[in-house]
């Protein structure tokens, strides 16, 4: 038997390689836990029952899944045109800030207020990426650095707002804004309608990319910008649009977190969702629909992290496990192109 490379892999090949990678990563993690003296079977059973076996677990899963879905979608959309938006974290914050400002200062019926907050969240996220976007589209400035650095600016801005102008004096240890009077209605107890909105956005973006002329142009520009220009496509305009959409989606994630889950603006609200979104997009192979299972996987892992911590497992172990999954997925992606064939 010999290993051979094949030129292309179908959708099923990719799915099989992804699933196998995750299984291998969890297997390695399980062996490591077993070596540390944990009863892996029991831990796994508890993680499953805590995640899926009761209402709290399912709600938590949904509350983790939906922001990861959106930040993952944001990163995936950018990847389709060949851009690395590392700034999901900052755009998440920016969307949260904008939505909070609207929520605290606009008086309107609930649905109107929530719609305005969503628009503000999108606009906030888009505004936060606007400068890196223009710098990339018009002066070819590397967007990886610019979007990344703005994350720190956004985090500091939230810190400033929450300890300064927007601080709620009734909060003691936690620096946070006042409570926002508009809350997204529940879908399932603490799981709010933001989850459904997130799923719908994934569908809309998938449709846009796969079935619209705009999406075709984005895909061509992502594969070869020069060819897109040659084909008469407005490449810079598409770059800007994709950037703004990407930032806006991360901003909506921030808005949903503020309006649905936390109800205040505060430092650390992003929970690293922006960075984890990059991982989601990578696992999904930048496919919008692939973002659904990829973000679910990460949500399960993060949720498992909380369960494991109550058993005294360090949260770093969970972080290592997520890294292992990504690593295995990257290896699996390469291995998917190899086939075992009988020699001659």
């Amino acid at each position: 038997m010999r290993l051979r490379r094949v030129a292309s892999v179908g959708v099923w090949g990719i799915i099989v390689s992804r699933v196998a990678s995750v299984v291998v990563a969890l297997g390695i993690g399980g062996v490591a836990f077993a070596l540390c003296g944990y009863d892996v079977g029991r831990l796994a059973g508890d993680v499953v029952s805590a995640s899926f076996g009761n209402l709290f677990g399912i709600e938590d899963l949904g509350l983790l899944w939906s922001p990861l879905m959106l930040t993952g979608l944001a990163a995936a959309v950018a990847l389709r045109i060949g851009l690395w938006n590392i700034g999901g974290e900052g755009q998440f914050y920016a969307g949260a800030i904008a939505a909070t400002l609207v929520g605290l200062h606009v008086q309107a019926p609930l649905w109107v207020a929530l719609a305005l907050m969503a628009v503000a969240g999108f606009a906030g996220g888009a505004a936060w990426i606007a400068v890196p976007a223009a710098a990339r589209a018009f002066w070819a400035v590397d967007e990886i650095i610019t979007t990344l650095l703005l994350n720190f600016v956004a985090a500091l801005l939230v810190g400033y707002l929450c300890t300064g102008p927007m601080r709620d004096p009734h909060q003691a240890v936690t620096a946070a804004s006042a409570h926002i009077p508009y809350e997204i209605p529940p879908l399932l107890d603490d799981l709010h309608w933001g989850f459904a909105v997130s799923v719908a956005l994934v569908g809309v973006v998938a449709l846009l990319l796969g079935r619209s002329v705009w999406g075709y142009e984005v895909r061509v520009a992502g594969s070869n910008g020069r060819a897109a220009f040659y084909a008469g496509m407005p490449v810079r305009v598409r770059l800007m649009q994709v950037f703004l959409l990407s930032g806006g989606l991360a901003g909506v994630a921030g808005m949903l977190e503020v309006a649905g889950t936390v109800h205040r603006l505060q430092g650390g609200i992003s929970n690293n969702f922006g960075y984890l979104g990059i991982m989601v997009a990578a696992l999904a192979g930048a496919s919008p629909l692939g973002v659904l299972p990829a973000s679910l996987l990460l949500a399960v892992l993060l949720n498992a992290g909380i369960v494991l911590q109550s058993y005294g497992v360090s949260n770093y172990a969970v972080l290592a496990l997520t890294g292992l999954v990504l690593f295995c997925a990257a290896v699996g992606e390469r291995l998917a192109y190899l086939r075992l064939r009988p020699a001659a």
């Binding site: 895909r219 061509v220 594969s223 070869n224 060819a227």
Partner: peptide, 8 residues
């Protein structure tokens, strides 16, 4: 380089 999108 100019007329084709290689990955598509």
């Amino acid at each position: 380089r100019t007329a084709l999108a290689p990955s598509l």
